[in-house]
């Protein structure tokens, strides 16, 4: 137990890295995911095909393999991502964007088709009807699944521990080596720090959900 309190600074360094990874990749994944979702419902077949291929490819590949590809395969084709933080951000946001896209798309589909037809009928373009009419309504259904995606992202950052990023899990491994007698408690500490990210995220989800709730 004491091993956790004695090593708070080491935990905090890892925790901050995990937090930074989650936030930066989360924002990037949200932006890419929104565009992908727009592509997937767009009237243009090539855009739909592109987005569908991307989503099916990334969503059905284990995250570790995405990392492997970026770190060990891409360099053979001359693509050298800066090792460490940015490699992790690219892998995590590329992977999470596929899930964001699907969550957002399900939200868009939940808005009645008549809304889109009405928007087009009054002369709004595809982009306008999506951003002014459909997405504001879709957001409400999308919040809970999106928070799920971000909680998963926060935990997925631990995969980066094996790829030159010293985040919470890697800090935990260092502490476990330094304290062979207290390996279990070191890992309990790691789990607690993950909870410090994921539980507030869940609470936030509840608050936002109530804020945007509306009577149907």
């Amino acid at each position: 137990m004491n091993v956790i309190f004695d090593n708070i600074p080491a935990y905090l360094t890892g925790f901050l890295m995990t937090l930074k990874l989650s936030l930066v990749s989360g924002i990037l994944a949200l932006i890419c995911g929104l565009f992908l979702a727009a592509f997937r419902v767009s009237p243009l077949t090539p855009l739909r095909a592109l987005a569908t291929t991307y989503v099916e490819l990334l969503r059905n590949t284990p995250l570790t393999i995405v990392f492997f590809f970026l770190v060990f395969v891409a360099p053979q084709f001359g693509i050298l991502a800066p090792l460490g933080f940015w490699t992790a951000v690219i892998a995590l946001s590329a992977y999470t964007a596929a899930f964001v896209c699907e969550a957002v798309r399900s939200g868009i589909n939940s808005v009645q088709f008549g809304q889109a037809e009405a928007a087009r009928a009054i002369g709004l373009t595809f982009g306008q009807s999506l951003s002014l009419v459909i997405l504001p309504q879709a957001v409400r259904t999308v919040i809970p699944p999106l928070i799920n995606v971000f909680i998963a992202l926060a935990k997925n950052t631990s995969v980066a521990a094996g790829f030159a990023t010293v985040e919470l899990m890697a800090s935990g491994r260092r502490l476990a080596t330094a304290n062979p007698a207290d390996t279990v408690w070191v890992l309990v500490g790691v789990a607690l720090f993950y909870l410090a990210i994921t539980i507030p995220a869940g609470i936030l989800a509840g608050v936002v959900e109530r804020k945007v709730a509306f009577a149907r």
Partner: peptide, 22 residues
């Protein structure tokens, strides 16, 4: 990551950037 050599590097080579893999 988490090996004794990593701990040695961190303790005795503060100016070295340690890149830990699996």
């Amino acid at each position: 990551a988490g090996s004794t050599p990593e701990a040695n590097l961190l303790a005795n080579f503060p100016d070295t950037e340690v890149v830990p893999f699996g």
